[in-house]
């Protein structure tokens, strides 16, 4: 169980990205965070594994206080929190295999990893992870030779290498065609069914309805909604996204419906 208490983040330039946000995530949930661009979704996700240091507030994972962890402890905690990014964040010039293996760095022998030497078991694991997302044949390609959807699958494979208990997905489909969104989210859904906790920020309401088990909404860094996806109707949507907002439905959803 993940418990976030009174989380606040103020950037050095004075921007208040998060203000007193508290919520809980039970193990095995698929929690979706919604909100406008700049509402604090990315900051929230990055505070959980402390890629961004929160200004105040606490984050507990079971009984471990993530916010109080020493650098070494923090690296241990991060090993179990996989992360998937909007821009995939692959090293474009490295091979897919190297990118996936880098997910294992938290476990690897530091000296051998610096020389680029990986145990056979890790390589096998990487191939399995790539197989799981259906691109094992691309292992030796350069990452930037892949399409956007394939790159995001490499990103998921990299997260899988961490043996994660939690997956943080920061708008994993915002850079992809709507048609590809479902294929990526279905991998996350599968992982969720296998017992992983997924915390994912999303833009499209229809995707929220389809995948989320629970939803929280942020507006200007403040939590404005917490509940079940079906509770978000058009009125609620307008409240979260502002009066001018028009719901854009993902094309694939139309096609499927």
């Amino acid at each position: 169980m993940l418990r976030i208490e009174n989380l606040t983040k103020i950037y050095p330039n004075g921007t208040r990205a998060l203000h007193d946000v508290s919520f809980e995530v039970q193990d095995g949930e698929f929690l979706v965070v919604i909100g406008l661009s700049g509402s604090g979704k990315s900051t929230l996700l990055r505070c959980i594994n402390r890629l961004i240091e929160p200004t105040s507030g606490k984050i507990f994972w079971d009984d471990i206080d993530i916010t109080a962890a020493s650098p070494a402890e923090l690296r241990h905690i991060r090993r179990h929190i996989g992360m998937v990014f909007q821009q995939f964040n692959l090293v474009k010039r490295s091979s897919v295999m190297t990118n996936v293996l880098s997910g294992r760095l938290g476990y690897a022998n530091p000296w051998l990893s610096l020389l680029g030497i990986w145990p056979a078991a890790d390589k096998e694991m990487a191939l399995k992870a790539l197989e799981r997302v259906g691109i094992a044949d691309k292992a030796q390609s350069r990452a930037d030779a892949l399409s956007g959807g394939q790159q995001q699958r490499v990103g998921i494979a990299r997260a899988l290498m961490q043996d994660p208990k939690i997956i943080l997905a920061d708008e994993p489909v915002a850079s992809l065609d709507p048609v590809l969104s479902h294929s990526i989210l279905q991998y996350l859904e599968q992982l969720n069914k296998d017992g992983l906790t997924v915390i994912c920020s999303l833009h499209f309401l229809d995707l929220v309805h389809r995948y989320a088990t629970r939803v929280i909404a942020l507006k200007d860094g403040v939590k404005v909604f917490e509940g079940l996806p079906k509770e978000i109707d058009r009125a609620k949507f307008k409240e979260i996204y502002g009066e001018e907002a028009q719901e854009v439905r993902a094309a694939s959803f139309e096609a499927e419906a």
Partner: peptide, 21 residues
């Protein structure tokens, strides 16, 4: 590109590993 650096940090890599990967 800060993206890959962030991604490698997120895996629990130490500072030298972040530079290397």
């Amino acid at each position: 590109d800060p993206g890959p650096i962030e991604a490698v940090r997120a895996t629990g890599a130490n500072w030298v590993q972040v530079v290397r990967y």
